[in-house]
Simulated scan of single mutants.
Amino acid sequence: MQNTALPGISRHNQDFLHVIQSYWQLTKPRIILLLLITTAGGMWIAAEGQVDPFLLIITLIGGAFSAGAANTINCLYDRDIDYIMERTRNRPLPSGRVSPRDALIFATILAVTAFTLLAVFANLLSAGLAMSGIFCYVVVYTHWLKRHSTQNIVIGGAAGAIPPLVGWAAVTGDLSWAAWVLFAIVFMWTPPHFWALAIMIREDYAKVGVPMMPVVEGNESTSHQILYYTLALIPVTLLLVYPLHVMGAVYAAIALLLGSIFVQKAWKLVQEPSELRVAKSLFKYSILYLMLLCAGMGIDSLPVTHRLTAALAANLGNHLVDAL
């Protein structure tokens, strides 16, 4: 990473609104939204569908700030290759709209604020986990792995799997086996999600020498890896049902339905590994998959869902007894 601004680039924020927009873009808000959904899912399960609204808001704000800090430092570190890639050239740092010094100050403020909010209004465990997420994303993924290993997104995916741990810890103050299963779900979901994107923008990564799997191993090998991870993801999601018994039949049905569609799309990519349209469809669905899976967790954990499923089970049991 260079320590000076890229040559030939000058700032061109037109007004204060554009300045705000530039800093907003540094945080990569679309990525943050997905991370917050997994955070909320962790909180919802931990609280058995009865989350304290104030704690939920504070934890989501703290999570957003910590993720924003990590993403900003990622943009700061990668501004050299972002300038080369067409897709990222207009980001705030390579375009010169934000200086490296200001970006670092901004990231520091976000991280300190996130830690303070979580430590004061939730607990130190959730605050510490949020900071570990920044460390994993910045040091382990961005600095150590991204430019040096085809397994960058596999190992680095641990950073994106930390938000549900933050949510769980904020509610309970500890980390149970269920919390670690939530971590494992996001960890296993990350390679299929990101490798589908990497297939779509393979040429960009090749241009800047980032050894993403499609660049080094090719689309065919990558598509098979995507399928393997997708197949492995389904039993991991069902661990919440058995043996942990923190989720019920509603979640199980949702997880199986969503997982089967995911596998179907992954299999289609195996058949057409160089078809960008198929990779794009898989990438978009992977986002929808995680959102709907977390929604399924929320629905299943509601007290009203417990009552309905218990009533249905009792009614079915009575009918079976009568039939016998």
Rank of each mutant, 00 (worst) to 15 (best):
L308P: 00
L56Y: 04
S22C: 05
A295I: 15
Q2G: 15
S10W: 11
Y77R: 07
Q25K: 13
I31C: 06
A253V: 15
A111V: 08
N152T: 10
M131N: 01
D15E: 10
L118S: 02
L124V: 11
Y251W: 09
M131E: 14
I81R: 06
A184K: 06
S126W: 01
A70V: 06
F106C: 09
G259F: 02
A295T: 12
N315K: 14
H306P: 00
I134E: 00
I162E: 01
N71P: 00
K268D: 10
S176V: 06
G160D: 04
V154E: 12
A198H: 05
P214K: 07
Y285R: 03
W168A: 08
Y228R: 15
G298T: 06
H143R: 14
L110F: 11
T59P: 05
T113G: 01
W177Q: 13
T222D: 08
Q264W: 14
L276V: 09
L257Y: 13
L35S: 08
I73R: 07
W189R: 07
M297T: 09
L33N: 10
L316Q: 14
V278E: 07
N318Y: 09
Y141P: 04
I153T: 15
L320A: 10
L258V: 07
Y205F: 13
A255D: 05
L125P: 01
L17C: 10
D78T: 02
K280P: 04
L244R: 07
A178Y: 06
A46Y: 05
I9M: 13
T72S: 14
I299A: 11
Y23M: 07
I199P: 02
F283A: 06
Y141L: 02
A5F: 00
D15S: 10
A5C: 12
A111S: 15
M43G: 01
I299P: 03
G128Q: 04
M85D: 08
I20S: 10
A252I: 02
S149F: 12
S286P: 04
V166L: 08
I20P: 01
H306A: 11
Q50Y: 03
A196I: 01
V263L: 02
S176Y: 08
H193Q: 08
V120F: 12
F283W: 13
V139A: 10
T172G: 04
L239W: 04
L256Q: 00
I9W: 09
L324N: 14
R307P: 00
F262M: 02
A249R: 10
I299N: 05
T222N: 09
P303C: 11
V270A: 07
